[in-house]
Design a protein around this nucleic acid. Structure first.
Lengths: 178, 178
DNA sequence: AGAGTCATGTAACTCGTTACATGATTTC
DNA sequence: GAAATCATGTAACGAGTTACATGACTCT
């Protein structure tokens, strides 16, 4: 179901072709929230068109077909967003790896935690730059998805870095204790 | 592939039945990292046994079968953890919703952001309690998965709460601007 | 002319969820 | 004796990935 709403949400920002939607998932959206390839997007778009949530323009150059959100589509998206959201599933292989790290011997675990902290620090710089700039407001007076995502990513990476540093400290306690 | 390593990781902590592994996914592991039901776990366990990564004891009370990690299984898990991890996919419906929030009108968006901040705050209290207690070290001198997860969750919820508060501030800017 | 990118699609497969199905032990 | 929990499995379906396949336009 999530892909469906991700597509509606992207089209709420601006009309787009399937190809462009696939590109959007390669950015911040795919990084923190949801991913999908073109092969999954095209069939789902067709379904949304069938249901009248999305309108498909005629083929343009190179067979490009621009999709636009309909009023019904916007309402469907909004109804989903307003609905209370409990029990949503999380799948994050990176976090899984972090949790299982103590299966390594302390030396290896320590090395990886240092790498994690360093990588987070690298990711932070460009995000800081984006977020410290001016707030981008769309013509319709809405915040851009990419801006919201950058703000989220910034705090997310800071949290992960802090966790790695904390975990290193806890590992030291284990060493002193044993 | 991730489920495979999640199971190996759980069994690295302690031997368990399929039922117990399924329970483990209902805790912090399933909350932040990966989820699976018993129906997916049993077939995967059978495969791990076939490959010699896990050993299965005879049936005990109520048909319970305890699974233990073999030396080969531990090595498989460690090899995966040591390997550089790029491009791991993230799927988080909650974060997706946050990003799409600007499709709502500002009043609704603001209401939901307040709810998000409040819920994060609720989740923080019990995590703070866990993390501020003593560091639990297993007999083999390893940190407990639940402890690592609690520390991660703590920083995660703080980050999400801070993001929601920031997003509220940005929404105010939009209002003043338009 | 050839490489790269834009652009759309299908087929086979893997992974995960919901629903179905069964039986043993414990607790009240 | 009934209800709850422990414990294991299968079947059908839905969601997502990899690989396959094609063609138009642009830039050098």
């Amino acid at each position: 179901m999530a892909l469906r709403y991700a597509l509606l949400g992207l089209l709420a920002e601006q009309p787009a072709s399937g190809y462009e939607l696939a590109k959007a998932f390669e950015g911040d959206l795919g990084r923190y929230a949801w991913q999908a390839g073109h092969n999954r997007i095209y069939p789902e778009l067709a379904r949304l068109v069938d249901e009248g949530l999305v309108e498909r323009a005629e083929e343009g150059a190179r067979g490009r077909r621009v999709h636009t959100l309909t009023a019904a589509g916007l309402e469907e998206l909004r109804a989903w967003l307003r609905q209370p959201w409990e029990g949503s599933t999380v799948r994050n292989e990176g976090v899984l790896r972090l949790f299982l790290l103590s299966a390594l011997d302390p030396g290896d675990a320590r090395k990886i935690l240092h790498e994690v902290a360093a990588r987070c620090e690298e990711e932070l710089a460009p995000l800081r730059e984006i977020v410290s700039g001016e707030t981008p407001i769309s013509p319709e007076g809405r915040l851009e998805l990419g801006w919201l995502a950058a703000g989220y990513g910034l705090r997310q990476y800071e949290a992960s870095r802090d966790w790695a540093v904390w975990a290193l400290g806890e590992l030291d306690k284990v060493d002193r204790g044993g």
